[in-house]
Structure formats: C-alpha cells, structure tokens
Simulated scan of single mutants.
Amino acid sequence: MIKKKLHIIKNIVTAIAVTMFFSCNNDFDEVQKVGILQNQPIGEAENIDLKYTELKNDTVKLQANLISPKMLDYSNRDFAFSEFPDGLKLKIYDDDNNMTTITSRYAIFYSETDLIDLRGNVVIATYTKDTLFTEQLYYSEKMEWVFTNQPFYYKQTIGFTKGNGFDADKDFNNFQMLEMGGDFELDN
C-alpha cells in the first residue's frame, strides 16, 4: 500500500517536472525588453515649477523654487537619482527674502547622498550681484557646501577672481581656491 502511494506521488512529481521543463521558453528578446524597461525612468515630468516652503512662526515662507522644462525620475534604480536633461533654474531665498539664482544646462540629483551635480554653463548669481561661472559644480545639501575642480570665474562688486577648483559654503563666506589664475571659457 505504501509502495503504491509512493509510486503514484513519484509519477505525479515526474509529470509536473516534465510539464514545467517543456513549457519554459528561452526568449532572449523578451529578457532584453525587461532590461530596457529597468533602465528607463520610472517617471517623467515636464514644465516643473516646484516650490519648497517652510513653516516659521505660523507663517509659510518660500525657501526655494525649482524651475525646469523636464525631469526624469530614476528612483527605481539601486542608487536613485533625478535627472534634469534640459537644465534647471533654482531660486533660493534666505531669511531676509534675498534671492540667489542658480542655473545650468544639465543637472542630476542623487537622493541617497543629497548631492547635486550641475553641468554646462553653471551660473550662481547672488542678491549682492556676486556671480560665479563654471562648467561643473557640485552642491552638498547635507553640508551646504559647493565645490568644483573645474576652471571658474568669480565676479564680485570689488573685482574678480579666476582659477581652477574651489570649495565654499553656500553663502560664499568661507571660500577657498585650489589654484589661482588659469584660462576660463564658457561652453557655447
């Protein structure tokens, strides 16, 4: 009796295994399509006008305004990021409502590290009319720090400075150049 039940179970398992074996398809084209979908953005937005506000003393205060023609959301990746392929304009407001404007032709924001990589004709214009020009600039939101190893040109009301590479806090109060002088050319 037990041998008969074992024999029946063995036959059922064999039938299921054979059915599964012959029903499997190795369609490489379908596998490739899945890979392509994983490399596509999970979301796409156009004509972005994002306002970041903060509640202070029962008053809502505008902290920043991000404007961009297009944003691609890659939060489906292991190392999530948002890409701004057509550039961006970021207006940042301080406690006295003074505005600093940052523009670039391309940007990418890495959400896990809070690092922003700005590229292509990067310009930072402060409310005091100080202006920084460079081709690539990184901004760390956590440290509130900007830095680059690229050539830069920094125009102030008291004169100008140009060099290669710098580090600075977000208000440019603590500014350090890596190398003074050098050639500077904007990407046209």
Rank of each mutant, 00 (worst) to 15 (best):
L132I: 08
Q156M: 12
D94E: 00
F133T: 01
D117K: 13
T113E: 01
D49H: 10
K4A: 06
G43P: 12
E44D: 06
F109N: 15
L6M: 09
K162A: 01
A168D: 11
N11C: 07
F79M: 10
V122G: 01
T59V: 05
Y110R: 12
G163Y: 05
F175Q: 05
I158M: 09
P69I: 00
I36L: 15
A168C: 09
T14R: 07
K162C: 02
P69G: 03
G159L: 11
A107M: 13
T103F: 05
I9R: 03
F160V: 04
T126S: 13
D114R: 14
M180D: 08
E30Y: 00
K155L: 14
E185W: 03
M71V: 12
G163Q: 05
F28W: 05
G120W: 12
F109W: 09
E144I: 01
V18T: 12
Y93W: 02
G87H: 10
I92G: 02
G35W: 02
M1E: 14
A125T: 14
F172V: 04
N39K: 15
Y127M: 04
D169Y: 08
I42K: 14
A80R: 12
E112H: 14
E54F: 05
I124W: 08
Q136Y: 08
D58F: 10
T131K: 14
L90W: 09
D171K: 11
F81D: 13
K89H: 10
I124Y: 10
I12C: 00
D27T: 06
A168R: 01
T131A: 05
N173D: 14
M143E: 13
F133G: 01
A125S: 13
V13K: 00
V13A: 03
N65V: 04
F147N: 15
Y139G: 02
S75F: 01
A45V: 13
I42M: 13
D58P: 00
A45C: 07
V31Y: 07
N174F: 13
N65T: 04
I92Q: 10
T161D: 05
D58Q: 13
S140C: 06
I42N: 14
I12E: 00
F28E: 13
I92M: 08
Q136D: 13
P41Q: 05
I36N: 11
F79L: 14
V122R: 00
L62Y: 06
F172C: 03
F184H: 06
G165W: 02
Q176E: 11
D130G: 05
F109T: 00
F160N: 14
I12D: 00
N97K: 12
V122C: 00
H7L: 13
